[in-house]
Amino acid sequence: MTATRVPPKRYKWALDSTTRGKPDRSSDLASPPGYNPSAGQVYTEVTRESDPNHLIIKKSWELALGPLKQVPMNLFIMYMAGNSISIFPIMMVGMLIIRPVKALFTMQNTFKMIEGSHAAGQKFVYFLGNIVSVALALYKCHSMGLLPSHSSDWLAFVEPQMRMEYSGGGMSLI
């Protein structure tokens, strides 16, 4: 049994009903239900951890990791959309491209509030996540054949060959 153990710090409220038997024989009274001697300690710890700076960092990490977390979902959507060119896949691909690009453009705005030692790293992760999303969307475009990646896509711009020699004639008229 892990009765002597201190409950995990992260839990503010925890009731350990198994700690009665063994530990404090010396004390006359059993502690009332819900009493935890180390609660104060925990509390202090929690208050230390939940100081605003720490929270901001945590929140901003969440923000920074957001785009990356969406990647599996996007992959799934892409898979479901298929490669045919019709209105819904096109809309999806459009969204896939537009969202990260928008996010990249408004990055300054998003990170205006965020300061701290992690800011640079978070910015980088956020940026990376969006780039990955864009890359995914582009890959989707490519597999749908929407990217001008083949020579055939540039065929309309190929100039006709210039004529070097001029010829004329035909059947003899005599």
Partner: peptide, 13 residues
């Protein structure tokens, strides 16, 4: 002027 690039041909039936 364009003599160098001009060619003429004839076919005899």
């Amino acid at each position: 002027k364009s003599a160098g690039s001009t060619f003429i041909f004839t076919a005899d039936k």
